[in-house]
Amino acid sequence: MEDLLIIENLSKAYNGLQVLQEISFSVEKNSIIALTGENSTGKTTLFNLINGFDSHDNGNIIFDGKNISQWGAIARSRAGIGRLFQNSRVFKNMRVLDILLASCFDNPGERILNYFVNPASIKSFEKTSRNKAAEVLNYLRLLDKSQDFGGSLSHGEKKLLSLGMLMMNNYKLILLDEPFAGLNAKMIDKISDTLSDLARNGQTFIIIEHNIEKVSSISNQVLILKEGRIIENNKINNANNLIN
Protein backbone atom coordinates (compact mmCIF):
# COMPACT_ATOMS: atom_id res chain seq x y z
CA MET A 1 0.00 0.00 0.00
CA GLU A 2 1.09 3.52 -0.77
CA ASP A 3 1.99 5.84 2.09
CA LEU A 4 -0.15 8.96 2.30
CA LEU A 5 1.78 10.53 5.14
CA ILE A 6 5.36 9.96 6.25
CA ILE A 7 6.64 11.52 9.42
CA GLU A 8 10.43 11.52 9.74
CA ASN A 9 12.29 12.29 12.98
CA LEU A 10 9.90 15.03 13.98
CA SER A 11 10.91 17.02 17.07
CA LYS A 12 9.34 19.96 18.79
CA ALA A 13 10.23 21.89 21.94
CA TYR A 14 8.39 24.73 23.65
CA ASN A 15 10.60 27.03 25.69
CA GLY A 16 13.10 24.27 26.33
CA LEU A 17 10.41 21.69 27.09
CA GLN A 18 10.92 18.84 24.63
CA VAL A 19 7.34 17.90 23.77
CA LEU A 20 8.02 15.59 20.81
CA GLN A 21 11.25 13.71 20.18
CA GLU A 22 12.20 12.12 16.89
CA ILE A 23 8.78 10.89 15.99
CA SER A 24 8.71 8.66 12.91
CA PHE A 25 5.83 6.72 11.43
CA SER A 26 3.92 6.41 8.22
CA VAL A 27 0.26 6.26 7.34
CA GLU A 28 -0.95 4.08 4.49
CA LYS A 29 -3.77 5.19 2.27
CA ASN A 30 -7.21 4.05 3.48
CA SER A 31 -5.92 3.14 6.92
CA ILE A 32 -7.05 4.18 10.35
CA ILE A 33 -4.30 4.99 12.79
CA ALA A 34 -5.07 5.34 16.46
CA LEU A 35 -2.81 7.61 18.46
CA THR A 36 -2.97 7.15 22.18
CA GLY A 37 -1.03 8.00 25.32
CA GLU A 38 -1.39 9.78 28.61
CA ASN A 39 -2.34 13.41 29.02
CA SER A 40 0.21 16.00 27.88
CA THR A 41 2.33 13.53 25.96
CA GLY A 42 2.18 15.68 22.85
CA LYS A 43 -0.66 14.12 20.84
CA THR A 44 -2.38 17.39 20.04
CA THR A 45 1.01 18.98 19.42
CA LEU A 46 1.71 16.31 16.80
CA PHE A 47 -1.55 17.24 15.07
CA ASN A 48 -0.56 20.91 15.20
CA LEU A 49 2.67 20.03 13.43
CA ILE A 50 0.94 17.89 10.82
CA ASN A 51 -1.73 20.44 9.89
CA GLY A 52 0.72 23.33 10.06
CA PHE A 53 -0.64 25.29 13.02
CA ASP A 54 2.83 25.04 14.47
CA SER A 55 6.23 24.50 12.88
CA HIS A 56 8.52 21.69 13.91
CA ASP A 57 12.14 22.11 14.97
CA ASN A 58 13.58 19.08 13.16
CA GLY A 59 12.47 16.39 10.78
CA ASN A 60 10.26 16.13 7.73
CA ILE A 61 6.61 15.75 6.91
CA ILE A 62 5.91 14.10 3.56
CA PHE A 63 2.29 14.21 2.47
CA ASP A 64 1.03 12.66 -0.73
CA GLY A 65 4.57 12.47 -2.08
CA LYS A 66 5.47 16.08 -1.31
CA ASN A 67 7.63 17.45 1.45
CA ILE A 68 5.23 19.89 3.11
CA SER A 69 7.51 20.76 6.02
CA GLN A 70 7.68 24.42 5.03
CA TRP A 71 4.04 24.81 4.03
CA GLY A 72 1.60 26.93 6.01
CA ALA A 73 -1.64 25.62 7.48
CA ILE A 74 -3.77 27.07 4.68
CA ALA A 75 -1.79 25.28 1.98
CA ARG A 76 -1.83 22.02 3.91
CA SER A 77 -5.58 22.16 4.32
CA ARG A 78 -5.98 22.76 0.61
CA ALA A 79 -3.61 19.90 -0.12
CA GLY A 80 -6.07 17.65 1.72
CA ILE A 81 -5.29 17.59 5.44
CA GLY A 82 -8.46 18.16 7.45
CA ARG A 83 -8.77 18.36 11.18
CA LEU A 84 -11.38 17.87 13.88
CA PHE A 85 -10.35 19.79 16.98
CA GLN A 86 -10.26 18.54 20.56
CA ASN A 87 -12.52 21.48 21.45
CA SER A 88 -14.91 21.98 18.56
CA ARG A 89 -14.30 25.11 16.54
CA VAL A 90 -17.77 25.75 15.22
CA PHE A 91 -18.59 29.33 14.20
CA LYS A 92 -20.77 30.52 17.07
CA ASN A 93 -22.73 33.32 15.44
CA MET A 94 -23.40 31.65 12.13
CA ARG A 95 -26.23 29.35 11.18
CA VAL A 96 -25.47 25.66 10.75
CA LEU A 97 -26.21 25.68 7.01
CA ASP A 98 -24.00 28.74 6.48
CA ILE A 99 -21.20 27.10 8.42
CA LEU A 100 -21.23 24.14 6.04
CA LEU A 101 -21.40 26.40 3.00
CA ALA A 102 -18.50 28.48 4.29
CA SER A 103 -16.27 25.44 4.53
CA CYS A 104 -16.37 24.57 0.81
CA PHE A 105 -13.11 24.79 -1.07
CA ASP A 106 -12.76 26.80 -4.28
CA ASN A 107 -15.95 28.78 -3.95
CA PRO A 108 -15.88 31.32 -6.81
CA GLY A 109 -17.86 33.61 -4.50
CA GLU A 110 -14.78 34.09 -2.37
CA ARG A 111 -13.15 36.15 -5.10
CA ILE A 112 -14.51 39.67 -5.50
CA LEU A 113 -13.68 39.83 -9.17
CA ASN A 114 -16.06 36.96 -9.92
CA TYR A 115 -19.05 39.06 -8.85
CA PHE A 116 -18.32 41.27 -11.86
CA VAL A 117 -16.89 38.89 -14.43
CA ASN A 118 -18.61 35.61 -13.69
CA PRO A 119 -21.63 35.88 -11.38
CA ALA A 120 -23.11 32.74 -12.96
CA SER A 121 -20.26 30.61 -11.60
CA ILE A 122 -21.09 31.86 -8.10
CA LYS A 123 -24.76 31.01 -8.50
CA SER A 124 -24.16 27.51 -9.78
CA PHE A 125 -21.54 26.74 -7.14
CA GLU A 126 -23.95 27.97 -4.48
CA LYS A 127 -26.61 25.64 -5.81
CA THR A 128 -24.41 22.55 -5.82
CA SER A 129 -23.00 23.28 -2.40
CA ARG A 130 -26.45 23.84 -0.93
CA ASN A 131 -27.50 20.43 -2.22
CA LYS A 132 -24.36 18.90 -0.81
CA ALA A 133 -24.91 20.63 2.55
CA ALA A 134 -28.49 19.37 2.69
CA GLU A 135 -27.22 15.84 2.03
CA VAL A 136 -24.60 16.11 4.76
CA LEU A 137 -27.10 17.54 7.24
CA ASN A 138 -29.56 14.83 6.41
CA TYR A 139 -26.90 12.16 6.83
CA LEU A 140 -25.83 13.58 10.19
CA ARG A 141 -29.48 13.96 11.25
CA LEU A 142 -28.96 17.68 11.77
CA LEU A 143 -31.42 18.82 9.13
CA ASP A 144 -33.81 20.32 11.68
CA LYS A 145 -30.95 22.39 13.11
CA SER A 146 -29.89 23.91 9.80
CA GLN A 147 -31.09 27.39 10.81
CA ASP A 148 -29.77 27.23 14.38
CA PHE A 149 -26.69 29.15 15.41
CA GLY A 150 -23.47 27.15 15.77
CA GLY A 151 -23.07 28.37 19.35
CA SER A 152 -26.46 26.97 20.36
CA LEU A 153 -25.60 23.36 19.49
CA SER A 154 -24.77 20.74 22.11
CA HIS A 155 -21.23 19.46 22.51
CA GLY A 156 -22.02 16.35 20.48
CA GLU A 157 -23.85 18.23 17.76
CA LYS A 158 -20.87 20.54 17.42
CA LYS A 159 -18.64 17.51 16.82
CA LEU A 160 -21.07 16.17 14.25
CA LEU A 161 -21.19 19.53 12.54
CA SER A 162 -17.39 19.71 12.54
CA LEU A 163 -17.37 16.34 10.81
CA GLY A 164 -19.93 17.72 8.39
CA MET A 165 -17.61 20.67 7.63
CA LEU A 166 -14.91 18.16 6.73
CA MET A 167 -17.35 16.15 4.61
CA MET A 168 -18.06 19.21 2.44
CA ASN A 169 -14.60 18.73 0.89
CA ASN A 170 -12.68 15.66 -0.11
CA TYR A 171 -9.88 15.65 2.40
CA LYS A 172 -7.28 12.96 1.83
CA LEU A 173 -6.36 12.70 5.49
CA ILE A 174 -8.48 13.66 8.48
CA LEU A 175 -6.97 14.21 11.90
CA LEU A 176 -9.48 13.56 14.67
CA ASP A 177 -8.57 14.82 18.13
CA GLU A 178 -10.58 12.83 20.68
CA PRO A 179 -13.79 12.66 18.65
CA PHE A 180 -15.57 10.64 21.35
CA ALA A 181 -14.54 12.62 24.42
CA GLY A 182 -17.36 13.90 26.60
CA LEU A 183 -20.13 12.29 24.58
CA ASN A 184 -22.95 10.01 25.71
CA ALA A 185 -23.20 6.46 24.39
CA LYS A 186 -25.77 7.34 21.77
CA MET A 187 -23.66 10.14 20.36
CA ILE A 188 -20.54 7.96 20.43
CA ASP A 189 -22.37 5.39 18.30
CA LYS A 190 -23.48 8.06 15.91
CA ILE A 191 -19.96 9.42 15.46
CA SER A 192 -18.52 5.88 15.18
CA ASP A 193 -21.04 5.06 12.49
CA THR A 194 -20.17 8.21 10.60
CA LEU A 195 -16.48 7.45 10.78
CA SER A 196 -17.07 3.83 9.68
CA ASP A 197 -19.03 5.03 6.68
CA LEU A 198 -16.26 7.42 5.72
CA ALA A 199 -13.61 4.73 6.26
CA ARG A 200 -15.49 2.29 4.07
CA ASN A 201 -15.37 4.90 1.34
CA GLY A 202 -11.60 4.99 1.60
CA GLN A 203 -11.07 7.91 3.95
CA THR A 204 -7.76 7.87 5.83
CA PHE A 205 -7.82 8.88 9.50
CA ILE A 206 -5.53 9.46 12.42
CA ILE A 207 -7.58 9.31 15.60
CA ILE A 208 -6.44 10.45 19.03
CA GLU A 209 -8.24 8.46 21.70
CA HIS A 210 -7.43 7.72 25.34
CA ASN A 211 -9.29 4.48 25.68
CA ILE A 212 -6.96 1.80 24.23
CA GLU A 213 -9.68 -0.83 23.94
CA LYS A 214 -11.89 1.56 22.07
CA VAL A 215 -9.12 2.48 19.65
CA SER A 216 -7.95 -1.03 18.97
CA SER A 217 -11.49 -1.93 18.12
CA ILE A 218 -11.75 0.74 15.47
CA SER A 219 -8.31 1.02 13.94
CA ASN A 220 -5.77 -1.04 12.04
CA GLN A 221 -2.67 0.49 13.56
CA VAL A 222 -2.05 1.79 17.08
CA LEU A 223 0.66 4.26 18.02
CA ILE A 224 1.37 4.78 21.70
CA LEU A 225 3.04 8.02 22.66
CA LYS A 226 4.87 8.48 25.93
CA GLU A 227 6.81 11.55 26.98
CA GLY A 228 7.06 12.70 23.41
CA ARG A 229 8.28 9.42 21.93
CA ILE A 230 6.50 6.61 20.16
CA ILE A 231 6.91 3.59 22.41
CA GLU A 232 4.72 1.20 20.44
CA ASN A 233 3.64 0.98 16.81
CA ASN A 234 1.42 -2.05 16.26
CA LYS A 235 -0.46 -3.05 13.19
CA ILE A 236 -3.67 -4.80 14.07
CA ASN A 237 -5.10 -7.36 11.74
CA ASN A 238 -8.46 -7.63 13.41
CA ALA A 239 -11.25 -7.56 10.95
CA ASN A 240 -13.14 -5.98 13.76
CA ASN A 241 -11.98 -2.45 13.14
CA LEU A 242 -13.87 0.61 12.02
CA ILE A 243 -14.07 -0.61 8.47
CA ASN A 244 -15.50 -3.96 9.60
Binding site: I74, S77, F85, R89, F91, K92, N93, M94, S103, F105
Partner: peptide
Protein backbone atom coordinates in the same frame (compact mmCIF):
# COMPACT_ATOMS: atom_id res chain seq x y z
CA UNK B 1 -18.38 36.12 9.56
CA UNK B 2 -16.30 32.97 9.89
CA UNK B 3 -13.23 35.15 10.30
CA UNK B 4 -15.01 37.11 13.03
CA UNK B 5 -16.02 33.96 14.91
CA UNK B 6 -12.84 31.88 14.68
CA UNK B 7 -9.81 32.82 12.63
CA UNK B 8 -7.92 29.62 13.32
CA UNK B 9 -10.83 27.53 12.10
CA UNK B 10 -10.87 29.59 8.89
CA UNK B 11 -7.19 28.80 8.38
CA UNK B 12 -7.90 25.12 9.01
CA UNK B 13 -10.51 25.32 6.23
CA UNK B 14 -7.76 26.41 3.85
Amino acid sequence: ESTRDDELAVIAMG
